[in-house]
Nucleic acid binder design. Structure first.
Length: 890
RNA sequence: GGGCGGCUAGCUCAGCUGGUUAGAGCACCUCGUUUACACCGAGGGGGUCGGGGGUUCGAAUCCCUCGCCGCCCA
């Protein structure tokens, strides 16, 4: 006998271990099985499971379990990401906290060894947390972005793209993070508006004044960069400055002559209309400098300290210290003209949080523009679809305006760039040092010393290959042949650019096919007030705590139920608690069925059921199967969850089991046997349908219930998803049970309103029943009596005096509860009912009186309204005559 | 500045290929231990669907406009 409640704490680890050891997570070897593959968005190898992972992985698991039960070769491929900057940052911080020397003092090899050590000690955390979540991924195929196979894929891709001219080395401005001392990509820069200032400096004109003007005033938000100015630019159409074009100004402090040039870039409306051009420290200025052939003067080092051809007193100063000094000196020289407050858009490193410096360096770039074209086309023509669809706009917008992707990072943790530099600067890009040496030998005609590029690749470079590198590429593996393209990718909208778009580019380029056919964008989990969860706000909900408190299934059901089209999920404990209760409800339904000996029967054919309630629940079950299947196919997770919840609680428990009780407790042996078997059958279907969402409690019940009745042939995880003939739908049974439910509901409602004690049993009289209603009554009399707590149900030509009437279709029912009737309350109830019908009649009649409606509305809509009007009129008349009798009574 | 969401019951949300008296869960009120379940059962109250305009026989649903909230890109 089942316990009164389900205990997730003991069941979950036991069941997971059983699944895992059974091999159920691996895709079936059956060659006829249709492949279904998901690749996990690889979490940081040293990370831990946060609420967003919990949501994301729950949805992946729902899909995987669903398709596995549908007989597909379902593969959910797990793995982790080395997460370059993030991991290196953590380890550097840890070293500092422990009082160790910095990574630079430690040296590259020693530092990398430290990171691997850290990885070894913290790896496995997230994998075990995914297990707690019930993730049915195939751990035997687990990959890591820095493992040998994936590293080989990275090298091969880099070399191939280089040979195709799609990866190249370029000297240009990059976003430089002075904290980590590395280049980062545009995507890793966060622009924030901050309160800043605009300084107006006068640059003295060299030579004779023009019309008495002997200076040009420029405006800048970054005074310290003036030391690297290469020109002053003015708009060619700006009448104030036209006459100065071609002349020179003497750059204060630096004491250099720089030209006044004409360019479209300066906006005459802004500042003074003249701008300083510092090509090595500003992206816009870089363009201007390139147009005019200006030399680029770099005046900072990797740490954003002042350096280069500048006055000695500035060397080594922090950029902000230098700023103050420049302003002070300019002021001293009498050249400071104005200081304005101004909101400025300032770039910050998304990881370091420090202000990014445009910095002139040599870096490796991917020609993203070229690779983007097929990626755009594939979504345009539907080879890959976003779900929800709207996200494709975001995707298109970014890809259509894509810039070269800077992929080199001056970090140590990551894939070393497979490029070797010769003594004369020639670069040999090859997959191995041996090949580079061979290439060098061919180039130089003799052996030379080569030095491998110091840099590593952007983490997202290896992630971009994930859908095929994890399947074994560049080897021709059977997995690759079978599972590429993968089916669905489930991920968050925050990495559409970082990851989804880049996988599309690389997948299409190297495999000639999209990496996945569908991308489901899951929502962002926020707290119950709609705020983003963050440690600093202290509003973080730890999924593992929630699992401890409510059980894993409750959390999973919550995520599933809340995954609609919305972009945010506001997670509240109350909601999780509600779904925990749902699990308990299911558990108790199973307990009930067990207590009533509802055993599964071999060879039981639901299609042959005779009892009306059994025919009805069979139909309801089929409807639910259809609804849930359709919803899961479409990633309409909330729709699936709602259909499951309603069916299990409001249909199966609230009505079917209640309707079954009189039969199970009665003495019609045949009816009892059929009802027992049907209950067991329907419960099994519930377990199957719920399993993708609530794997643990369903598997537990599956096992517990297997101790009785017909034998099972395996665990629920690999059970077959239900598919039933539509012939099992039963309109007649549905109409009949709906009628019974309406009748019983009315009786209950009246009892409650009239405060009839639960113990009081009243007779119910039906007046004016047609043949159908009479037949229904005969078949369901016991059920109605039992559920309505009635004394009896009879037919009569007239309602007994003093009974409370209500109308069900053509029948007037009268509940004899004399002694409990409060005359005033009953009059009020009747008046309200009559008013309801009157309102309905008025609305419907108004429509039908409108010739346009009758002429233009769809035929069936008009017909519905006609029927409705007729029914309402009859019901109203019946209630009115009851009201008359009541008034006559006194 | 461009783009994308959202605004429906006290709260969280569904409904939005136009056509029931606009639904659910939670919360609230009343009643109830009838041998599955109080993590429960029965009943009930509660919304002029953000404002305005338009299309239509008919609008929460389609179009326009305004307002507020949020996100992304520049």
């Amino acid at each position: 006998m089942l316990e009164k409640t389900y205990d997730p704490k003991s069941a979950e680890p036991r069941l997971y271990a059983k699944w895992e050891s059974s091999g159920a997570f691996a895709p079936t070897e059956d060659p006829a099985a249709e492949p279904f593959c998901l690749v996990i968005p690889p979490p940081n190898v040293t990370g831990s499971l946060h609420i967003g992972h919990a949501l994301n992985n729950t949805l992946q698991d729902v899909l995987t379990r669903f398709e596995r039960m549908r007989g597909k070769a379902a593969l959910w491929l797990p793995g982790t990401d080395h997460a370059g900057i993030a991991t290196q940052m953590v380890v550097e911080r840890q070293l500092a906290a422990e009082g160790n020397v910095s990574r630079r003092d430690m040296g590259r090899d020693a530092f990398i060894a430290k990171v691997w050590e850290w990885k070894a000690s913290s790896a496995g955390t997230i994998q075990n947390q995914l297990r707690r979540l019930g993730a049915s991924c195939d751990w035997s195929r687990e990959r890591f972005t820095l493992d040998e196979g994936l590293s080989q894929a990275v090298r091969k891709v880099f070399v191939a793209l280089h040979k195709q001219g799609l990866i190249y080395r370029d000297k240009r401005l990059v976003n430089w993070d002075p904290q980590f001392q590395t280049a980062i990509s545009d995507l890793e820069v966060e622009t924030r508006e901050v309160q800043g200032k605009m300084w107006h400096f006068a640059y003295p004109l060299e030579g004779e004044a023009i019309d008495g003007v002997s200076e040009i005033v420029i405006a800048t938000t970054r005074p310290e960069t003036m030391l690297g100015d290469g020109a002053v630019a003015v708009h060619p159409d700006d009448p104030r400055y036209q006459k100065f074009i071609g002349r020179f100004v003497r750059l204060p402090i630096a004491d250099r002559l720089i030209p006044i040039i004409a360019d479209e870039y300066p906006d005459p409306e802004k500042g003074s209309g003249a701008v300083k051009i510092t090509g090595a420290h500003d992206f816009n200025d870089f363009q201007v400098a390139a147009r005019h052939g200006l030399s680029l003067i770099s005046i900072m080092d990797e740490q954003a300290k002042m350096a280069g051809p500048i006055p000695e007193r500035y060397l080594g100063l922090d950029r902000y210290v230098a700023r103050k000094r420049v302003i002070a000196e300019i002021e001293e020289m009498g050249l400071l003209r104005l200081i304005e407050d101004k909101l400025i858009a300032q770039p910050f490193g998304d990881r370091s949080g420090v202000v990014i410096e445009p910095f002139l360096t040599d870096q490796w770039y991917v020609d993203a523009h070229t690779l983007a074209q097929p990626a755009i086309k594939a979504v345009e023509n539907g080879d890959m679809v976003f779900e929800p669809r709207n996200w494709e706009k975001t995707y298109f917008e970014w890809l259509r305006n894509i810039q070269p992707w800077c992929v080199s990072r001056q970090l140590w943790w990551g894939h070393r760039i497979p490029a070797w530099h010769g003594p004369d600067g020639t670069i040999f890009v090859e997959e191995s040092e041996a090949e580079a040496k061979a290439a060098a030998l061919a180039h130089y005609g003799h052996e030379t010393v080569l030095k491998q590029d110091e840099d590593v690749l952007d983490t997202w470079f290896s992630s971009a290959l994930w859908p095929f590198s994890t399947l074994g590429w560049p080897q021709d593996t059977s997995d690759l042949a079978r599972f590429y393209p993968t089916h669905t990718l489930v991920t968050g909208f925050d990495i559409i650019f970082f990851w989804v778009a880049r996988m599309m580019m690389m997948g299409l380029h190297f495999k000639g096919e999209v990496p996945f056919k569908r991308v489901f964008i899951n929502a962002l989990v926020r707290d119950d007030k709609g705020q983003k969860m963050s440690k600093s706000k202290g509003n973080v909900l730890d999924p593992l705590d929630l699992i401890d408190e409510f059980g894993c299934d409750a959390l999973r059901f919550t995520f599933t139920a809340m995954s609609g089209q919305a972009r945010d999920i506001k997670l509240s404990r109350q909601r999780i608690e509600g779904y925990r209760n749902f699990g308990t409800k299911l558990w108790n339904a199973a307990r009930f069925s067990q207590m009533n000996e509802c055993l599964r029967e071999d060879g039981f054919d639901p299609g042959a059921a005779k009892q009306i309630i059994n025919r009805w629940i069979r139909g309801e079950t089929v409807k639910t199967v259809l609804a849930v299947t359709k919803a899961l196919e479409a990633c309409a997770f909330d729709v699936a969850a709602q259909a499951l919840y309603r069916f299990v609680w409001n249909v199966f428990c609230d009505w079917y089991l209640e309707l079954a009780k009189p039969i199970l407790n009665g003495d019609d042996g045949e009816a009892k046997a059929e009802t027992r078997a049907m209950t067991a059958w329907a419960l099994d279907v519930c377990l199957k349908l719920l399993h993708p969402v609530m794997p643990f409690v369903t598997e537990e019940l599956w096992g517990k219930l297997a101790e009785f009745g017909a034998a099972r042939d395996g665990m629920l995880i690999t059970a077959q998803w239900p598919v039933f003939p539509e012939a099992w739908l039963d309109a007649e049974a549905e109409a009949e049970i709906d009628w019974v439910i309406a009748l019983v509901s009315e009786v209950r409602s009246i009892r409650s309103e009239m405060n009839v004690p639960p113990s009081a049993r009243a007779p119910l009289t039906l007046v004016g029943a047609g043949d159908v209603a009479k037949a229904r009554l005969v078949r369901n009399r016991d059920l109605i009596v039992s559920l309505g707590r009635l004394e009896s149900v009879k037919e009569a030509d007239v309602a007994p005096a003093g009974a409370v009437p209500f109308v069900i279709e053509e029948v007037t029912a009268a509940l004899s509860i004399a002694g409990f009737i409060d005359l005033a309350a009953e009059k009020a109830r009747l008046a309200k009912e009559i008013a309801n019908f009157a309102g309905d009649i008025e609305r419907t009649a108004k429509k039908l009186d409108n010739p346009d409606f009758v002429a233009r509305a769809r035929e069936d809509v008009v017909e519905d309204n006609r029927e409705r009007l007729a029914e309402s009129k009859i019901a109203k008349a019946k209630l009115e005559s009851a009201m008359d009798r009541l008034i006559a009574l006194g």
